[in-house]
């Protein structure tokens, strides 16, 4: 089986590097981005299997990034997990409406993030249906 590629997007560098370190050690290939524009660039370059996405991002918000990715043929069905400090009901609704597969409210433990990644990894490793 091919190595899973994961894109981690968060404007907080310490969070990015922590997740990158932990996931790399578990055998995933990890790319990171600290703003919305960089996130799109990384997503289209590497076509990751899963994306962890923050909402509060400089240059382009997470919701905008999400919409752009869903509009593109290559990334329209990529599992995208939002990881945000915005925990209001309307924020969650907006995220899911824009096409996120899951909406995780900070703070969240690494174990929980890993459980979500594994759940979607199983789905995306199924044969593609298009």
């Amino acid at each position: 089986m091919e190595i899973m590629k994961i894109l981690v997007v968060d404007d907080e560098r310490s969070i990015n590097s922590y997740l990158q370190r932990k996931l790399t050690r578990l055998g995933y290939t990890v790319f990171t981005a600290e703003d919305g524009v960089e996130a799109l660039k990384q997503a289209f370059t590497h076509l990751p299997d899963i994306i962890l996405l923050d909402v509060n991002l400089p240059k382009l918000s997470g919701i905008e990034v999400l919409k752009t990715l869903r509009a593109d043929e290559r990334t329209k069905s990529t599992p995208i997990l939002i990881l945000s400090a915005r925990a209001q009901g309307k924020d969650i609704k907006a995220g899911l409406k824009a096409g996120a597969n899951r909406y995780l409210c900070k703070p969240v433990s690494f174990a929980n993030i890993l459980r979500e990644i594994r759940a979607y990894a199983e789905i995306s490793s199924d044969p593609p249906d298009h």
Partner: peptide, 21 residues
Amino acid sequence: RISRDEQQRHRLQEYIFELEE
């Protein structure tokens, strides 16, 4: 109030990751 909640959640997230490390 929302933004304060957000900030706290942000900080907590960092604490958690540090603790896990």
